[in-house]
């Protein structure tokens, strides 16, 4: 096992707990920070880390969500959040030349796009669950996308704002925090 692995495992666990805590906390409908954290982790630690966090968070959330067991929609929620993690990883690779306001705008646009992708994938899952009950698929798709439109707009706009404002300072802080031995003093806790 690589020397970084235990540290990353701890980080994955802590961030998963943070995301679940945020998911369970009272908040306006469709305003959430899980996708930001998954995107951020993907950008800072790579695609595999982002995907792992996305899978773990949405899997646990599917069982503990205040809305109840996600059931048939759970794999779609996981897939949608995995897309956010992959997007974060790709953004982390591609944004090395960007900084400042431009990076904020790029991240906001990407956040809005990935949020829309997440919403569309989960709406697809809801529509599929309707279709399983006998509703024609095209009708299930139309009713799901249209009835969820306003919630989706709230989700997209709020995430665009959150990604644009929070991502850059948070990613800088996370990079410094995980910078290696100089930040992580290897000494006994019992000093």
């Amino acid at each position: 096992m690589q020397p970084q692995a235990p540290r990353q495992l701890v980080l994955l666990t802590v961030l998963t707990a943070l995301c679940i805590g945020l998911q369970l906390s009272p908040r306006p409908p469709n305003v959430e920070f899980t996708s930001l954290i998954v995107f951020l982790v993907g950008a800072v630690f790579g695609i595999s880390f982002g995907v792992s966090l996305a899978f773990l968070v949405m899997f646990v959330n599917g069982f503990l969500s205040p809305w109840g067991f996600a059931g048939f929609v759970l794999p779609f929620q996981v897939a949608g959040m995995v897309a956010v993690g992959i997007g974060g990883g790709l953004h982390g690779r591609a944004s090395s030349g960007s900084h400042g306001a431009r990076l904020c705008v790029e991240t906001a646009v990407l956040g809005a796009f990935l949020t829309l992708v997440y919403d569309m994938v989960t709406n697809l899952g809801v529509a599929a669950s309707y279709a399983l009950t006998g509703m024609p698929l095209h009708l299930a798709l139309a009713s799901t996308f249209i009835s969820g439109a306003l919630f989706s707009v709230i989700h997209v706009v709020s995430n665009a704002a959150v990604f644009g404002v929070v991502f850059v300072p948070l990613s800088n802080a996370l990079r410094r925090l995980s910078g290696g031995g100089e930040n992580w003093k290897e000494e006994s806790l019992l000093t």
Partner: peptide, 23 residues
């Protein structure tokens, strides 16, 4: 690329919202 992404988001969200208000 980013302008296209932003317009795509706007287009899809706008279409869905228009559908919602039409219904």
């Amino acid at each position: 690329t980013y302008i296209a992404l932003a317009l795509l988001v706007w287009g899809i969200s706008g279409t869905a919202t228009a559908g919602y208000y039409f219904v």
